[in-house]
């Protein structure tokens, strides 16, 4: 299984993602933002970080970079594209997934473990996972998911909400919402469910002695789903 991780100027989770993908069997290639051609891939990942220093709006500059046209075309033909954290911000700026990510409600940079509840398992990312609540890590300043009421209705109608912030039991409540996101939304799909954007970092949960193993579950399952 081949994967590509795009490195933008200011990406800083690209190597972590590379380590995670390789650990679970992907043959991963790092792709520079200024390249125009995407290598043949079963999965493309837009990693976390601070692309272009978060200038203008997080992800806005990166969404216009050369490689993104190929990534957008890849996504539009059904290719799997996953954006984590800054990658999610880039995805919303391309319009591949609806909505936008605003400054966190209390203006704090949040760096901690959170629990997320899977909302939709009928897709390549979460199908066959035997857990409904996963512990991931978040580290962001702009993760406050926002969309218009019309968009919210549409993403609900199309079952596009991927994950919600919750507690360890899977209860979705305002008190477990770290950043003010509408309806505790932590990640969403495009209509076809081949594009996933989420704020939490599964690649930071792939080692029992360092963090946790829920990221390991996610990646193991993902590669099996793609095979």
């Amino acid at each position: 299984m081949k994967s590509s991780v795009i490195t933008f100027p200011g990406s800083n989770c690209d190597r972590d993602m590379d380590v995670a993908l390789k650990k679970f069997g992907f043959n991963n290639i790092m792709v520079w933002h200024n390249d125009s051609e995407l290598p043949k891939s079963d999965l493309v990942v837009l990693p976390g970080g601070f692309s272009y220093g978060d200038y203008l709006r997080c992800g806005s500059m990166a969404s216009k970079s050369k490689i993104m046209q190929s990534v957008i075309n890849f996504a539009k033909t059904g290719g799997l594209v996953m954006g984590i954290c800054n990658g999610f911000q880039i995805l919303v700026e391309t319009g591949l997934v609806p909505g936008v990510l605003l400054r966190n409600k209390y203006l704090e940079f949040i760096c901690k473990n959170v629990f997320v509840k899977l909302n939709n398992k009928d897709n390549a990312y979460f199908k066959n996972l035997n857990k409904d609540v996963l512990e991931f890590h978040i580290a962001h300043n702009e993760g406050n998911y926002f969309c218009t009421n019309d968009q919210l209705k549409e993403i609900k109608d199309n079952n596009q909400i991927a994950i919600y912030y919750c507690n360890s039991e899977g209860n979705i409540d305002d008190q477990y919402n770290p950043n003010g996101s509408i309806k505790n939304i932590a990640g969403i799909f495009n209509k076809q469910k081949n594009v996933l954007g989420m704020m939490p970092h599964p690649e930071r949960m792939i080692d029992q002695s360092l963090s946790g193993e829920d990221g390991s579950l996610f990646f193991k399952n993902l590669i099996n789903n793609i095979k």
């Binding site: 605003l102 966190n104 203006l107 218009t148 003010g180």
Partner: peptide, 10 residues
Amino acid sequence: KDVLDPQGKV
């Protein structure tokens, strides 16, 4: 108008 502006609030 309907978008929260935490910076403005502070």
